[in-house]
Design a protein around this nucleic acid. Structure first.
Lengths: 348, 348
DNA sequence: AAACTTGATGTAAACGTTTACATTTTTTGT
DNA sequence: ACAAAAAATGTAAACGTTTACATCAAGTTT
């Protein structure tokens, strides 16, 4: 028994033990577990058998220390408790695990300071890569320079930073807004209202831009009044919406920047005794689970969160495996998927 | 320059470098960063200054290897893309990070085989503790014996295993069902229907038991017909519900096992031109975000996911810090919180 | 049959910490 | 001022792997 305190010396089997049991050297045993290196089939079998018998499990920390590769990637999100992030993480985890990587989850809570600390922390942990959706306070990647310097691969997702040379996977919010609006137009809507999100958030800005361009492209005019700043939590924009719906030249279509906003709008329509979709067609954004269970089921724009996660993971893995000199950055922008349900289906 | 390949030798400052810079020994530098040990204020300052200047960051892998403590806890859930788990993980992450721990997320996808592999993996990673919500296939903790043997602390959450001596944090689903039902009774409901979840899932069974006992305690009789097996995805139970609502002695209250089920029921009521809550009061379970944005807003039972996560983290931390010989297991069962909204408010 | 190639295995150093024990310095009591 | 106790610092081994290089056995070529 050693002089150092060990958690459980009697069951901690090491490669040394396996080596002793087989009569082989430590190096050969290691080679068996690395897979890549050349080893006779006979020795491989022998080692595997001994390892099995001794219940040997390779200590990843030691391997990580020696090799400099932790087989771990850090995933940084503003908050995990959110459809977009949790779904994306779900598929990241699955894909990375398949490739033998673990993920360490960190939440920035939309704080740049926290994000900076997290990055440093991940650096200490020797993560091989980082997948990050930056906080709202983050405007550049200065705090990730140390990661870059270490050669740690980085993939941005969901939110992008302008003017940065870095891998990124985001959804095409402009296209989503365009698709939703075009769909309403195709359904025969003549005057469409947009319940807009905070202008400062780029994804909302993009959705709005898509809305505007779709109208233009289809020869529909729109006034500024048709774009309502809508915030469900503070009942912001509710009165304006009621005003528009009760006035003359009543809107016959609503494109909401989110599903919850659409839900609130449905409530307003109900109050005013307006039917969905007969009087007013409506479409949301996000395709939350509840959409299909509403009555009528709510049309929405699916953000393909899992696809985003999968793609981010793939890009990272590619970089981790190749590690080529001339860095090439992949910037992906996925088109969202229009999900048409009853709430926006006017003509048969 | 060494002969071994290093990721970035020119910026990887080690304690050795700091020691050299300060003229102190490696051990003293280490002691400064451990905090616990005795060091003169002067040397501490000197070391910290040098470390700052050299941009030193302690290598956690090396520390983990030597000390046997990785400052990491494994969090295993069936799937992360789910309100219950993502919210719980959200608060776990926050609390554990505060205490200097990282979390590694793993998804079992409700498969026992996957869970077994994950546990072995976490073992290899030398995690200090594990917080787990077991898969539906899991009936005992045999696969966690190796963890226990290592002295790794374990906390079960959300789902519990019978007859096991282990820490656990779950919500009192029985109490939730009871509260919801009692509330409907207080609102004057005379005949209440329960939209039940799969009997095989214990949380649903408990909710149902709460429903039954509440009725009994309040002197209300109920027939088996009033309990409908309801599965929103497969439209299971929809016809039965319509039958009950169109028959004589129409039910005037509905307690759904989940919010989505409640949502579907609301749709049915709408079809039948029954008003909520005037004709039929309704309450769900889970308190999903959308509940408060429905019209009328849906009453529900809040599962306190974040409290669960926080408590699980606290229990684990306590065990990690103390590590006393005589293991004491904490079994917590939190009462859920009744959230009353319009959908179940009959009298003023 | 000698020289040369190829492939498998062994040797030992290194990764960057922590920590038991030894040694030195400082403080305290007389 | 001196011994003894306490506190700070130093020394060096250890944690469990990976891997460059050395060695050695077995084919292959001439």
């Amino acid at each position: 028994m050693g002089i150092y305190p060990q958690p459980c010396p009697w069951l901690m089997t090491t490669m040394k033990d396996v080596a002793k049991a087989t009569g082989l050297s430590l190096a050969t045993v290691s080679r068996v577990f690395n897979g890549s290196d050349k080893v006779t089939e006979k020795t491989r079998k022998s080692v595997l058998k001994a390892a099995e018998k001794l219940n040997f499990r390779p200590n990843k920390m030691a391997a990580a220390l020696r090799s400099g590769k932790s087989k771990t990637v850090g995933v940084v999100v503003p908050i995990i408790d959110n459809d977009v992030f949790s779904s994306a993480i779900k598929s990241m985890e699955s894909h990375l695990r398949e490739a033998g990587y673990h993920i360490i989850i960190c939440q920035s809570h939309e704080s740049l300071a926290a994000e900076v600390e997290i990055i440093q922390n991940l650096l200490n942990l020797q993560v091989d890569g980082v997948i990050i959706s930056v906080s709202k306070e983050t405007t550049d990647m200065a705090h990730m320079d140390s990661l870059k310097a270490q050669g740690t691969s980085i993939v941005l997702f969901d939110r992008k930073l302008e003017f940065e040379e870095v891998n990124s996977v985001i959804i095409n919010n402009y296209n989503g807004g365009y698709q939703a609006t075009a769909h309403l137009i195709e359904q025969g809507c003549k005057r469409i209202v947009h319940l807009a999100g905070k202008e400062s958030v780029s994804i909302f800005k993009e959705r709005k831009r898509g809305f505007e361009n779709a109208l233009q492209d289809h020869g529909l005019s729109y006034s500024e009044k048709d774009i309502i700043s809508f915030e469900e939590d503070e009942a912001l924009g509710r009165e304006e919406l009621i005003g528009l719906l009760s006035g003359n030249n009543r809107p016959d279509g609503i494109f909401a920047h989110g599903d919850i906003s659409a839900l609130v709008a449905v409530g307003v329509l109900k109050e005013l005794n307006l039917r969905v979709p007969e009087d007013v067609a409506i479409i949301g954004f996000g395709d939350a689970t509840f959409c299909s269970f509403l009555s009528p089921p709510l049309s929405s724009v699916n953000q393909r969160n899992e696809d985003i996660g999968k793609l981010a993971a793939s890009i990272l893995l590619e970089q981790l495996e190749e590690k080529k000199e001339g860095q090439v950055f992949t910037q992906s922008m996925l088109p969202p998927e229009l999900i048409v349900r009853e709430s926006s289906t006017k003509n048969i």
